[in-house]
Amino acid sequence: MTSLSGVRLYTWQRLSAAVMAPLVVLHLGTILYAVNAGLSAAEILARTQGSVFWGAIYSVFVLAAAIHAAIGLRAILVEWARLRPVSAGWVSAGFALVLLVLGLRAVGAVVLS
């Protein structure tokens, strides 16, 4: 941990939020479209499998969410669970890794044919 961890984590959390904001809108719009159009799971997979666009969009989304959530969790662990900042940092890094693996696995499942 460097002496700038306050500003570094703050900046990463804001930047990841800025990345996620348009992606959340796109994600919700896609859900509304899929539901309104009455697409079946097979029809959705037909559109996503092999798509570089959806693969890239959701990979970035997963990465931003893993960073953003882990930084927030670190603050909660320090403030409410009374963990030392270094310990909270390690637990949060582990949580980020879990989110990243589960998220990318899900992206792979709908994009890779």
Partner: peptide
């Protein structure tokens, strides 16, 4: 600015 940028600084 360095001092207030550390853990426990203004960003907390």
């Amino acid at each position: 600015l360095q001092a207030v940028s550390a853990d426990g600084g203004c960003h907390a």
